[in-house]
Design a protein around this nucleic acid. Sequence first.
DNA 1: GCCCAGGAGTGTG
DNA 2: CACACTCATGGG
Length: 285
Amino acid sequence: MNFRTELEPLDLAKTLGCGQTFRWRMLPDGSWRGPLDDQLVVLKKSPGSKLHISAEPGREDAARLVKEHLRAGDDIARIQRSLRSRDPVLRKGMGGLKGLRIVKMDEWECLVSFVLATYANIPRISLMIETLSKKYGEPIAGGVNRFPSRARLARAGESELRACGLGYRAPYVRAIAQDLTDDRLESMKDLDFEELRDALKELPGVGDKVADCVALFGFGRLEAFPIDVWMERALARLYHKRGSYTRLREFASERFSQYAGYAQEYLYYNERSHAAKGPCLFSEE
DNA sequence: GCCCAGGAGTGTG
DNA sequence: CACACTCATGGG
């Protein structure tokens, strides 16, 4: 089953391969395959052409899931205008990243994924999530399984989870799966941003950074600005800003305001690209 | 082998 | 408030 959809601007490699989300894989022909909800989807797009979506037969809702995941409603031009007017660092090279979109993940999957992401690199995070999904998730297609449900992970033992390579993260995942009810997770959608951060931070294994990632990529709060080691480097190098998480977060909030999440993704992508001796789009203020 | 990783929790000054 | 230390383990 095939669809063509207008969704611009969009760069699949930048969006799906940069560490916001961990289950998409690039196939040899340059298309991207990943699980969305209960189905396996393949996306293909060359610059200047429409997005091509391949889904399983009879799944007319695949296009809707893809558009939701890629936040088709975000007006990227408007977001970049807002950031450009606020920040001289982003003002110049941001156009080169206009295809980098924030994704919208399932809240539960996002929460567990970023608890696992603490002090691990992206390939390892992907490995942990694939191992968990293979062991506890329902098969979808092509040997790919759904992300495990909360109820299923609640029944997993700590040693079982450690055997999936989670290390010291195993008890966190187990405790969250057992203690966080579906209703409580659902009710978090109604909280305002600061309340949501506080509610997430009550969970074991969730601190400032994980809470901001879950608020941004799971709950779609574009004002969130997660700060990891790469962002600390970017803020020090480009803005000469250092200090505690709270201090850096307040700087970002004042500087970038309602679209801080997009600013964060641009700076994060740029900093990693810079470290890999790739193109560097931004220079100091 | 070595260093690092989209950090958090706990204890101490 | 700021640091220091520990926590497992696969990738580069």
